[in-house]
């Protein structure tokens, strides 16, 4: 499938659902209206956080380059390597499979397994999406979860590095 095909494919899911709404509006108008109201309410709640997400994305695109940080994955096995691996994971964007070729290359060039592990684990921390997360769960939850996620990924990285001796 070409680039255009892939771009169109992401619209299949929402278009399919809009079609279902159209059918339900004919056969179950009352319940379909309730569903639309509920969805509209969620969209309204998301509007402000999404604007913040866009602003954060732009700031990251302007000032940070995750690919630059990944250069340190293979160079330093000490604390600096851990910090850079975690930071690269946190600021990395896009689907994980887009990063596999780069990680494969880094591994072939001698990057330590533990640092790759820490990088992948820290992808669970999404600073750009924090406004949305706080909207649903509150800042205390986000703070505690973020701290535990980073700690767990570093601990797991060391454990796996020991298993692989890398």
């Amino acid at each position: 499938m070409g680039r255009k095909g892939r771009r169109l494919r992401i619209f299949l899911f929402p278009v399919f659902l809009i079609g279902i709404y159209a059918i339900l509006l004919v056969f179950f108008p009352e319940k379909a209206s309730v569903a639309m109201g509920r969805s509209g309410h969620i969209f309204l709640n998301l509007a402000v956080p999404l604007i913040l997400v866009f602003a954060l994305m732009t700031a990251v695109n302007l000032f940070l380059e995750p690919a630059r940080v990944t250069r340190f994955l293979g160079k330093d096995a000490g604390l600096r390597g851990v910090v850079f691996s975690a930071a690269a994971g946190i600021i990395s964007t896009g689907p994980i499979y887009a990063w596999y070729p780069l990680l494969k290359e880094l591994r072939e060039r001698g990057a330590r397994i533990s640092l790759l592990f820490i990088f992948l684990g820290n992808r669970a921390v999404k600073p750009l999406l924090i406004p949305v997360m706080i909207t649903y769960f509150g800042w205390e939850y986000v703070l505690v979860l973020t701290l535990f996620t980073i700690t767990a990924s570093v601990a797991a990285g060391y454990l796996v590095g020991h298993l692989f001796k890398g």
Binding site: F13, P14, L17, I18, L24, V34, A35, R38, S39, L46
Partner: peptide, 13 residues
């Protein structure tokens, strides 16, 4: 958008 529309349906139906 698809996820939010789906949640609306789940809630109603």
């Amino acid at each position: 958008v698809g996820v939010v529309l789906l949640i609306g349906l789940f809630n109603a139906f």
